[in-house]
Design a protein around this nucleic acid. Structure first.
Ligand SMILES: [Mn+2]
Ligand SMILES: [Mn+2]
Ligand SMILES: [Mn+2]
Ligand SMILES: [Mn+2]
Lengths: 219, 219
DNA sequence: ATTAATTTTTAGTCTAGACTAAAAATTAAT
DNA sequence: ATTAATTTTTAGTCTAGACTAAAAATTAAT
């Protein structure tokens, strides 16, 4: 069944909210991420339920069905593959690609995305370290930690980010934090949970808890 | 000013109809190409005139303004550059790319299309021999002839096609007619204006006037 | 010059996807 | 257990972009 642009954006956001929770998703949480009012969300949820892409009980929240999830994953696959293209082939920085990929992810062509995948040499992760779902909708659970969870004096590798926003990514770039960087946690301040880090052999840097929370690492 | 998808498609089609004629364009001719009813076209023409993209006098037809033309050309530029990308980088055949380019041409990003242009090495023509407008909206007048206009015994080079439809392009491929082919007009049948052609040193082929009319050549 | 045929526009309607204001249901607080 | 606060839904409205049917203007035919 054909999906409209609005429907695809809802499914993607519901997917993101469902991820990592067994609870059903609230109307308000969707409204916040779509920048719509709750009443508009209710409307759309009824349509999505009608099409069989979500299970929805009024006042009780919403979840993706298997089909809804596979549609969401195919959009995420497209989004991330296009981000790889933009960075690897066109020379964009990682903080510049999200908005363009938000448009490209809605291009509809089965062959296109598979040819693109092959052209890019079947990448497993996007420029932000996020895993790229397979054509079959498989997405590996990478099991990364948030840097804020890493213990004092431990060393870890920066594997991804939990936020796509340009200002956040630009800050990381300024701090010389990029994918693959080796990080040692030198200090954790109990007052504000800010962290002091050593990157490779460079001199230490300081980051807030807010930043540490949005950095994904492998120990 | 922002352009909607519907507006962009109208402007592109009006551009195509204006090309090569000094006459104003009729509502019905637009309706035919957009697959809309005349009443819907009238509606849209009023909106486009309001925005300053066309000059429109009711019952008297329509033309693009300078601004309208430059919007149309920027969409055509994007369409053709994406077609080059699909053929050159992703390995599509020339008969497979038009529909996908119809979607990609609406992606909005100034930087994207210029980076793509550079990635493709600033191509001057698309896979169908159509010229690619420059960033400034310049489009070279190539002055090709229709193969149907070439005189008996003359030799010419296949430079482009006047139709994007997949069935037409597939027929050319089957006949071994591709961009750059050297063609000699061996025979023109007065009865139906069908043409006998020699391609390079191969044995002669026959094509209908309808096909000859849609092949562009340089003598 | 009239009349007939054709083209175009107007008037009114529909759908998707948004909105606001008010009503209903759920959850939290006493 | 009630009441108050919060969340969600319903009812009604709006806009873009399509439609049909009927009216108006233009063009073609006599
Ligand atoms: Mn992104
Ligand atoms: Mn990403
Ligand atoms: Mn095309
Ligand atoms: Mn083309």
């Amino acid at each position: 069944m054909a999906t409209s642009l609005a429907e695809e954006n809802y499914l993607k956001i519901i997917y993101r909210l469902c991820e990592g929770t067994k609870e059903d998703i609230s109307t308000n949480s969707i409204a916040e991420l779509t920048n719509n009012k709750a009443a508009s969300v209710t409307d759309m949820l009824q349509k999505l339920a009608e099409k069989g892409w979500v299970t929805y009980q009024k006042y009780q929240g919403v979840r993706l069905t298997k089909i809804g999830e596979s549609i969401a994953l195919s959009i995420i696959r497209k989004h991330r593959l296009w981000e790889v293209f933009l960075v690897e082939k066109l020379g964009y920085n990682w903080d510049e690609v999200h908005e363009i990929a938000e448009q490209l992810e809605h291009i509809e062509s089965e062959t296109l995305i598979n040819k693109l995948d092959s052209f890019l040499d079947f990448p497993k992760i996007d420029p932000h370290g996020d895993p790229i779902p397979s054509q079959e909708g498989e997405i590996p659970e990478l099991g990364y930690l948030h840097l804020s969870e890493v213990k004092l004096n431990e060393t870890c590798t920066l594997m991804g980010v939990a936020k796509d926003s340009a200002v956040f990514l630009q800050l990381l770039t300024k701090l010389n934090l990029s994918l693959g960087a080796r990080l040692e946690v030198l200090e954790i301040n109990t007052f504000d949970r800010s962290v002091s880090l050593k990157i490779a052999e460079e001199k230490p840097i300081f980051i807030s808890h807010e930043v540490a929370k949005n950095i994904l690492v492998k120990v």
